[in-house]
């Protein structure tokens, strides 16, 4: 759906569901994952429907992912960092050791 304009100088790596993805310093997780061609960032808590970013400016919350173990983070507002571990959010966010 999206391709880089100019050279994609991806010098760092983030992990999406344990898969390494090249990332550009300074870009947001949302931009990085869309470039990588991800088909969904999360599924909804109600029907399990897949979602991708809709507004990209922090209003719609459809880009929610788990970042370094913390759920329901907005991928469109969060810059990448080397070695960051991101996970698709399936339904509602969960907290380790707390059963829903």
């Amino acid at each position: 759906m999206f391709t880089p304009i100019g050279s994609a100088e991806a010098t760092i790596t983030i992990f999406m569901d344990d898969t390494p993805i090249p990332a550009r310093p300074g870009e947001t997780i949302a931009a990085c994952l869309l470039r990588a061609g991800l088909s969904r960032f999360r599924t909804t808590p109600v029907s399990g429907a897949p979602r991708l970013p809709y507004c990209m400016i922090g209003h719609c919350f459809d880009c929610l992912v788990e970042i370094d173990g913390v759920g329901s983070r907005q991928a469109c507002l969060s810059p990448v960092s080397d070695g960051m571990r991101v996970r698709t959010q399936q339904g509602a966010a969960t907290i380790d050791g707390v059963s829903p």
Binding site: F2, A30, A31, R35, C55, I57
Partner: peptide, 17 residues
């Protein structure tokens, strides 16, 4: 997606649809 989202991806993501 919204038009603003695509513009953000162009400006900050250096991505073209």
């Amino acid at each position: 997606m919204t038009a603003g989202a695509v513009q953000t991806l162009i400006k900050a993501g250096r991505l073209r649809p």
